[in-house]
């Protein structure tokens, strides 16, 4: 392998978030923004938001990244997963159509559970394992999963978008989930 070839660093984004956390590094933040904001915007547009609302959502989510960078723990989750979780919580907030004026705690999975040491190691390999698992699914299974993640009213909307009967979409999602579980936790299925 030639040393001249620049390998993409799979942990580059993790380091950028850490730089924001440690040094309030503005360049690092700008780089994160340039990469993730357009992806967050794309997600929201897919879920049915107007481009304007999606733009604001991406702005707000990235501001949360700036504020919460010190909570990022690369051993627990990769950058993309962490930013996804932040955006997911923000999206859940937006769905709170009748939120009371009370401050409500965020449902933030990443901070709630105490990991066992062996779990921490497992989690740091998660992204690679998940990517590998997704590559083992059929393309149409990956497609319904992606839509299920990015659309608000999963099944009927997905059925409409793919022009498929609702039942087909439901069973395709279920089969994709079963297969994903078999690949990702072959030994834990019984323990569930």
């Amino acid at each position: 392998m030639s040393l001249d070839v620049v390998q993409p660093d799979p942990f580059a984004h993790d380091r950028l978030i850490e730089a924001v956390a440690l040094h309030r590094d503005r360049e690092a933040f700008a780089e994160l923004f340039s990469y993730f904001a357009p992806r967050l915007k794309a997600w929201l547009i897919k879920s049915g938001a107007t481009p304007g609302a999606a733009e604001d959502f991406a702005q707000d989510a990235m501001l949360t990244v700036w504020r919460k960078a010190d909570l990022f723990d690369a051993r627990k989750a990769r950058a993309a997963t962490w930013i996804f979780t932040i955006a997911r919580n923000r999206r859940l907030d937006m769905l709170r159509r009748d939120a009371r004026p009370l401050p409500v705690p965020e449902i933030e999975l990443a901070e709630q559970t105490v990991e066992r040491p062996d779990e921490i190691v497992a989690l740091s390999q998660d992204a690679a394992r998940v990517r590998d698992a997704l590559s083992q699914l059929k393309p149409d299974q990956v497609e319904v999963l992606r839509l299920a993640f990015f659309m608000d009213s999963p099944h009927s909307e997905i059925a409409r978008q793919l022009d498929l009967p609702l039942g087909t979409v439901k069973s395709r999602i279920r089969n994709a989930m079963i297969k994903l579980r078999l690949i990702l936790e072959p030994s834990e299925e019984a323990a569930r």
Partner: peptide, 29 residues
């Protein structure tokens, strides 16, 4: 066990976000 599974699913979400085709932000974003 289910909590761990949900976190795996969020990793899936992160992967999807990572590979999403970006929608260009406004010029002054």
């Amino acid at each position: 066990a289910n909590d761990a599974w949900v976190r795996q699913l969020q990793t899936v979400g992160g992967e999807f976000l990572d590979e999403a085709a970006p929608a260009p932000m406004a010029d002054d974003a």
